[in-house]
Design a protein around this nucleic acid. Structure first.
Length: 446
RNA sequence: CGGGCUAUGGCGCAGUUUGGUAGCGCGUUCGUCUGGGGGACGAAAGGUCGUGAGUUCGAAUCUCGCUAGCCCGACCA
């Protein structure tokens, strides 16, 4: 993409309305624009990041055997009456009346819809297990939206629903989600710690929230310092291996890690003092096994081998996709702007032309642009008539991992400067090896 | 939903106390110089002062209503 053809409304000034760094940087870098309290437009740059996050989420869900689909944002009130939640949900639910005076709502979540789909089509135990998911916009009419995209009223969420024949199978589905979530966050360049979450009136141990540590996080968290170093890394995950999955889950959940709601001081104090960590975190996902709550209310059953009917065991599992974009910035920025992890960066390589209009330099820029594009990477070429400082500041602000600087100084020697955004280290490379260097840097991330 | 605050060119703000020609910085446009970290100089465009009513010879400024947004708290992914 050439910057002169792009839409990138950046700003030098820090917007007064933004309190936290991710919100400030998203506004300054032209990723989003507020349209009403807690409701945002995603401008081209923001959308690119959002889509990259979405892509990783999709890939990891499908590796775990979960099936993508898409449910609507607008739902009929009827289904919610059936589950009893139409009354329970309160003012957080945005209620709408259509022209036929039919009561509708903008979905805050999708248990009712998916259960209705399930019961319409799945009748036999032979068709289980199934996990269906979608990535769709939700609306919760928060009393007080804040922190930009991190706590908006409208948000993009991946929500998956598992259907199983019995409790052990449902727990396996739970484990599949837990591990696939860990994979997802790691790929995105985030470390998220699974923490035991409140299961509400249903009880049981089967809900975890995933927290990304950040000073600005909304939740207070307490955990065993040992948890912080557990990683999957390149470890292969076999989602068919029930026992192996359980062992992985145990490894990640055996240490003490809880949010304020479930915090147990006496347990926490049993840890050696140096491992008692108290911090703040951003909630980026939650998994929940809740048994037959909805299948019972909405009569979702399958026929067993002996002809009897059985209520299906369900779980719902969510990842806050739009919120992740904010969390990523909270975790990856410096005083000059955003520092995108390679997996989600909106552009891979920034090409900065320091002497627009110089035949030789324009030519070299074009050559690198073409080479990078041909390799399947996404370059952003600053071909504006701007001074060097402005161009550098722009690329730093929007956080492109690699910056290729083409100017008279280097060209005289046949050399080009490539700078890494995160380490700020600079390499001088011969012109013809720049493209290969960039490709190599992104191996495994594209 | 309780408490507090704000609304003035695209953005950030001053002006409101004490009513009297609407101002600054950034950005934008044009020109000249410049050219490896948001450059300099010169010129220009751009505002029904959130909105409705009232007080007044006269309202950005005073009074009342409404709307929108923000902050703290309770709540939430």
């Amino acid at each position: 993409m050439r910057l002169t053809n792009y839409f990138l409304p950046i700003s030098k000034e820090v917007p007064t309305d933004a309190q936290i760094v991710s919100h400030q940087l998203m506004l300054r870098s032209g990723m989003i624009k507020q349209s009403a309290s807690g409701i945002y437009s995603w401008l081209p740059l923001g959308l690119k990041v959002l889509q990259r996050v979405e892509k990783v989420v999709h890939e990891e869900q499908q590796k775990a055997g979960h099936l993508p689909m898409l449910m609507p944002t607008i739902q009929p009130a009827e289904l919610w009456r059936e589950s009893g939640r139409y009354e329970d949900y309160g003012k957080e639910m945005l209620r709408i009346t259509d022209r036929h005076e039919r009561e509708m709502l903008y979905g805050p979540t999708n248990e009712e819809l998916i259960t209705d789909i399930f019961r319409s089509f799945i009748k036999s135990y032979k068709e289980l297990p199934k996990t269906l998911y979608h990535i769709q916009w939700k609306f919760r009419d928060e009393v007080r939206p804040r922190f930009g995209i991190m706590r908006g009223r409208e948000f993009l969420m991946k929500d998956g629903y598992s259907f199983d024949i019995d409790r052990p199978m449902a727990i396996n589905a739970y484990n599949r989600h837990l591990v696939s979530y860990l994979k997802t966050y790691e790929r995105l360049g985030l470390q998220a710690i699974p923490m035991r979450a409140d299961t509400g009136p249903i009880g049981g141990d089967y809900s975890h929230e995933f927290l990304v540590l950040a000073k600005t996080g909304e939740s207070k968290v307490f955990y065993d310092g040992a948890s912080q170093h557990i990683k999957l890394g390149n470890e292969y995950v076999d989602y068919e291996d029930v026992g192996g999955l359980q062992r992985t889950v145990d490894r990640f959940t055996e240490n003490y890690a809880r949010t304020e709601e479930t915090h147990d001081l006496s347990l926490f104090n049993q840890l050696p003092e140096e491992r008692q960590v108290e911090a703040r975190g951003i909630e980026v996902g939650q998994i929940f096994y809740f048994g037959t709550k909805y299948s019972e209310a909405m009569d979702a059953t399958v026929t067993l081998a002996d002809g009897s009917k059985k209520l299906v065991e369900m779980g719902s599992h969510g990842i806050g996709v739009s919120r992740l974009v904010g969390a990523l910035i909270e975790a990856h920025h410096d005083e000059d702007g955003i520092v995108w992890p390679k997996a989600v960066t909106p552009f891979h390589v920034a090409i900065v032309n320091l002497k627009q209009g110089d035949t030789e330099i324009d030519k070299v820029c074009e050559q690198i642009y073409t080479g990078i594009t041909a390799a399947g990477l996404d370059p952003l070429y600053d071909d504006r008539e701007e001074r060097a400082g402005a161009k550098f500041a722009t690329m730093d602000l929007i956080g492109i991992p690699l910056r290729v600087t083409v100017g008279p100084r280097g060209i005289r020697e046949g050399m080009i400067e490539v700078r890494c955004r995160s380490t700020r280290t600079v390499k001088e490379l011969p012109i013809n090896s720049v493209v290969d260097y960039c490709i190599e840097e992104f191996r495994g991330f594209e």
